[in-house]
Design a protein around this nucleic acid. Structure first.
Lengths: 203, 203
DNA sequence: AGTTTAAATTAACGAGTGTTCATATATAAT
DNA sequence: ATTATATATGAACACTCGTTAATTTAAACT
């Protein structure tokens, strides 16, 4: 173990990659350890050299669900919020990129598949997926209200309204792409949403 | 077979009832025919006197997912839409009742659990859950636009914006109730949504 | 009464599941 | 070259799954 304690086979990474794809397609129960193993060309017993059991594989995979690189620090919010529509435009752009990003798409599918089967996921969904984003947006809206850029009201409520539609679009996109259907009708939905919403709140 | 071809045991109904509860809690794969059988006090083989196989039980159960009694005929829409906010208030009231109705709650959970595992459900979700409701709402908004009650725009788009938040609230409520958590914070969210939205579109 | 028919039980099947363990192979360190 | 270590294999385990078959029980009809 001079440099790394792992031989260069990288089997563990392969397992995680394949498991991610399978879990996000067939769910936890729909994915067998045999399937994971054969997919990467080894026997199922070899998996247990890298992971304690099936669940620990899932846990490691599902860790990445909420590692969304949403880059918004407080200072940036204050700066950006004063620009009004550009602020929410920026937010939605990031959201859209995540929606159509291959890895994030898998993670979102996995989240949706296991949401009602996994209590921890539900709680993370509420905190990481909802509260966190609402907070960021609400801060922006609060700034706008103070500067009379948008109509006054409850910033949290405004953020809730805004984000709920984003989620809904993302869900629809995910469902369509799951069946390899076209998302043309929804590709501009994000922008339409920004326009509609801005028209609803601007002063 | 003088009156009915079934003896009065009513086992078939019991199966459907128990299966509904289990499917909506643990999903299709998480529910075994043995569990369904023992839950109603019979052996698993007895199930096959009433249903061909497990899937046919699920199909019969899932039939009820989209039998939502959303009572809105065309004439009623035209009448009601002229009243503006009262129209969307009425719509949301029905939506809220469904959200907190015990049977509909189970059906919604079942829908969410199997959404990514069942292609037919996805298509029904799009048509019955989305398109149908968007259409009803869009008709109402169109009437309002023609009578200068709300600002003009794409009625379908407006309906999409409106319904996406309803869905999001419903999802959150369902998740909270799944863990027997309080939904106090969300109980007035439906009404808040109506207020916010009406403020956004009224003229 | 006896006959028919529906619905239940008992038992077993083949297949798939996650996991374990003894063994073999191959790479790295001494 | 020898030892040590990491990783792979083959085989088996106990278990659960959906489904089928033969048989028994019980109710309904004639």
């Amino acid at each position: 173990m001079n440099t790394e304690q792992y031989r260069k086979t990288g089997t563990k990474q392969k397992i995680l990659k394949v498991a991610t794809a399978l879990f996000s397609e067939y769910g936890y129960k729909g994915t067998s350890v045999r399937k994971i193993a054969t997919e990467i060309g080894i026997k199922q017993s070899a998996l247990y050299n890298h992971f304690e059991n099936k669940e620990s594989i899932f846990l490691e995979v599902s860790k990445d669900i909420f590692t969304t690189p949403f880059t918004f620090d407080d200072e940036e919010i204050k700066q950006s919020a004063l620009k009004g529509k550009a602020f929410i435009n920026k937010f939605v752009l990031q959201y859209k990129l995540l929606t159509f990003d291959k890895n994030n798409e898998k993670m979102f599918r996995l989240l949706m598949i296991e949401l009602l089967q996994n209590k921890e996921l539900r709680e993370q969904f509420m905190s990481e997926f909802h509260d966190k984003n609402v907070k960021v947006l609400a801060e922006g809206f609060f700034m706008m209200m103070q500067n009379s850029i948008v109509r006054s009201g409850d910033p949290m409520m405004m953020a809730y309204e805004f984000i709920s539609t984003l989620f809904y679009i993302r869900l629809q996109v995910t469902l369509l792409r799951f069946d390899s259907k076209s998302t043309d009708m929804l590709s501009t939905q994000f922008e339409k949403h920004v326009d509609f919403f801005w028209e609803s709140i601007k002063l």
